[in-house]
Every structure is written in structure tokens, then in C-alpha cells.
């Protein structure tokens, strides 16, 4: 905890200040720091008791695979939210990157780009690039023209969906090459590719946020933009960069989704931003910026995945899953607030 990046914040937000002021860790502090991890462990133990299939290797891989797309989106959003932004466009960017990359990797005579299918590497680069460009456009609107992030990405949510429908004529892009499908259906030493990519993205994000100067600047720019500017940090550049990162990761997620389902569907990814934001918030990252950890996001995404999977295994109607997710989101933030008041 000594290297908690939030502490580099020159004028810490109330939560961080309270944390820094209380020298000895109270039970409440422990609960707050590890509460979400405890919740995940408790839910897993409960499900292990309730259902004989929950704790089987195949089901664990299923949960990880089902979590990977939301997890990757949530990691991108962690960057944005730490820098005091929000990205509502990731669901639409998922669909746009999916159809663009798929059209380069399709053998269909109608939906593919002429001269295709192109090598899978090119398709992957194109998908990530499309996502990064969408993010960069939102980022430029926020950083350069001072458009609120909510508004800029709300615009991108609509525009990217429209571009997806225009590009694909509203039709699925089918017949993807085996090489492209491998990123969604293949595995390395028995670990499904979406999980491998999720793990790589997590490791990269963790390293960037905790070990690099850029990471510390993201926290500083979100915690107190004014102080960050005074201490020589280019806040506009940081803001631009976090949106580009979120967009690029949404592009990656979109290609994994297309590769998993076998076609890139133009209506894919609707409302995915909500689950991703939920994972970030459940993971303890503050929407006010500057406070939070990517490990929290990982646990938050896993908790959502485990709950959905467990309820499916037990044959509980999917409508309950929505209610339970809603309760989780509010409960996680309430835990935060209670602790802040107490200290």
C-alpha cells in the first residue's frame, strides 16, 4: 500500500485524504480495501456448495472466457475513469471494429473487402486502429475542445453505431477465416485465447498504471487536474491518451466477440458500456477520478461473470441476474461511502 499511486495526488480527494490520515488500518479500512475480493470469494464458496459443477476446471474456464470481453472493456474504462472521464461509446466501438476487421478476414463474396481475405495480422491491426481512432476523436473533443466526456462519448456512441450499420449495410459479416476465429475460439496450452488476451491486457494495464510515469500522471490528472497542471503535467495529453487506450481495447474486444460468435454482427455490443462501467465501479474506482486500481476492476468483472454463470447453472431466470447486478453496483459504492464517513 505504500506505493499507492493515489498518494502522489498533490491535493488528494476526501477519500484518499482520509486514507492517508488514518495511520492504523481499522476493520472498516480492511473491508474497504479487500471487501470486493472477500465478496468474490464468498460468492464462489457459496456457488461451490450450491452447485456441483461450479468448481470444475471447465466451468472456471467458461467463467473466465465469458468475463474476458467485459473485462477488457472495463480495463480501458479504468484508465478513462481514473483520469476523471467516462466512455459511453465502447459498445458501439465494439461493433464497428468487429465489422471492419471481419470484412478484411471474411471469405464471403458479398460482405468482404475486395481482394480478401487479408492476413489475420492486418485485420487485427485494422480493428485495434479503428477503435483507437474512435477513442482519439472522443479524446480530442474532450482534451482540446473541452467537451464534457459524457457528451463527447455519447456522440461517439451514436456515430460509431451509425458507421457500423453504414459499413455493413446492416448485415452480419459472415464466413471469417479460421486464423481470425482463432483469437476467439483457439487456445494456448488449454487456456482459451480470449482469456490469454484478457490476462495480457490486465498485466499491461497494471504495469502501466503502477510502474510508469504515465500511470502516475493519469492518477494525478484525475485526482486534481489543476495541481497536476501546476506541477508540469500535460493534462490534455493524458486525457487524450486514456480515450485512445479505451478505444483500442474496445476494438480488441470487438474482434474477440466477432471471432467467438463466428460473424461480426452490426447490432453487437449494445449496452456493453454499462457492464464495463459496473465492473469498474464495483472494483472500487471512484467516478470522481484519481482513486482506484485495475486489480479492483479485474475482481469486479469476475464478480459479475461469476454471478451470471452461477445463476445460469442453477437455472435462475435471467431477469434476477439484472436485479442482482444492480444491487451489487450500489452496495459496492455504499461500502466506499460508509468507510469515508466513518474515518
Amino acid at each position: 500500500m505504500t506505493d499507492d499511486p493515489a498518494r502522489t495526488d498533490p491535493q488528494p480527494s476526501p477519500g484518499a485524504a482520509a486514507q492517508a490520515a488514518s495511520g492504523n488500518r481499522s476493520v472498516a479500512g480492511f473491508l474497504q480495501a479487500y471487501g470486493i475480493l472477500i465478496a468474490l470469494v464468498v460468492v464462489c464458496l457459496g456457488l461451490t456448495f450450491l452447485n456441483e459443477f461450479f468448481l470444475t476446471p471447465r466451468n472456471i474456464l467458461n467463467v473466465l472466457r465469458q468475463t474476458s470481453i467485459n473485462g477488457i472493456l472495463a480495463i480501458g474504462l479504468t484508465f478513462v475513469i481514473l483520469a476523471r472521464g467516462i466512455d459511453l461509446s465502447v459498445g458501439s466501438v465494439v461493433a464497428l471494429a468487429g465489422v471492419v476487421a471481419a470484412s478484411l478476414a471474411s471469405t464471403s463474396s458479398t460482405a468482404a473487402v475486395a481482394g480478401g481475405p487479408y492476413p489475420v495480422g492486418l485485420a487485427l491491426i485494422a480493428g485495434v486502429a479503428v477503435g483507437a481512432i474512435c477513442g482519439a476523436v472522443s479524446g480530442a473533443a474532450v482534451a482540446r475542445f473541452n467537451v464534457p466526456a459524457f457528451v463527447a462519448t455519447l456522440g461517439m456512441l451514436s456515430a460509431a453505431r451509425g458507421l457500423t450499420l453504414l459499413y455493413s449495410d446492416g448485415r452480419p459479416v459472415p464466413a471469417l477465416t479460421d486464423e481470425f476465429r482463432w483469437i476467439g475460439t483457439g487456445d494456448i496450452f488449454g487456456i482459451p485465447m480470449p482469456v490469454v488476451l484478457f490476462a495480457l491486457v490486465f498485466a499491461g494495464a497494471w504495469w502501466t498504471l503502477t510502474q510508469t510515469r504515465f500511470g502516475r500522471h493519469v492518477y494525478a490528472a484525475g485526482g486534481n487536474p489543476h495541481a497536476a497542471t501546476v506541477s508540469g503535467i500535460n493534462v490534455a495529453r493524458i486525457r487524450f491518451a486514456v480515450f485512445a487506450i479505451s478505444g483500442a481495447l474496445a476494438g480488441l474486444a470487438g474482434m474477440i466477440l466477432a471471432a467467438r460468435t463466428g460473424s461480426a454482427l452490426p447490432q453487437a455490443g449494445v449496452a456493453y458500456e454499462l457492464d464495463a462501467i459496473a465492473a469498474v465501479v464495483i472494483g472500487g474506482t471512484s467516478l470522481a477520478g484519481g482513486v482506484g486500481r485495475v486489480t479492483g476492476t479485474l475482481i469486479g468483472a469476475l464478480l459479475i461473470g461469476v454471478v451470471n454463470n452461477g445463476l445460469d447453472l442453477m437455472g435462475v431466470e435471467s431477469y434476477y441476474q439484472l436485479v442482482i447486478k444492480g444491487v451489487l453496483i450500489v452496495a459496492a459504492v455504499m461500502l466506499d461511502q460508509t468507510r469515508n464517513r466513518r474515518e
Binding site: 466451468n59 467458461n62 460468435t261 445460469d312 435471467s318
Partner: peptide, 23 residues
């Protein structure tokens, strides 16, 4: 054995079926 909605969605049905195959 099971009867549930996937809202006409391929991705949702895929998750549902994966979990049913486990159960």
C-alpha cells in the same frame, strides 16, 4: 431441462448454452 431467454441474441445464447452444457 432448461428454458430461458437470450433476447434473440447470438452472444447471449452462446453464454447460456455454455453454462447449460456445464450444468
Amino acid at each position: 431441462l432448461e428454458q430461458q431467454t437470450a433476447n434473440w441474441s447470438r452472444a447471449e445464447a452462446q453464454t447460456l448454452m455454455e453454462n447449460w452444457l456445464t450444468a
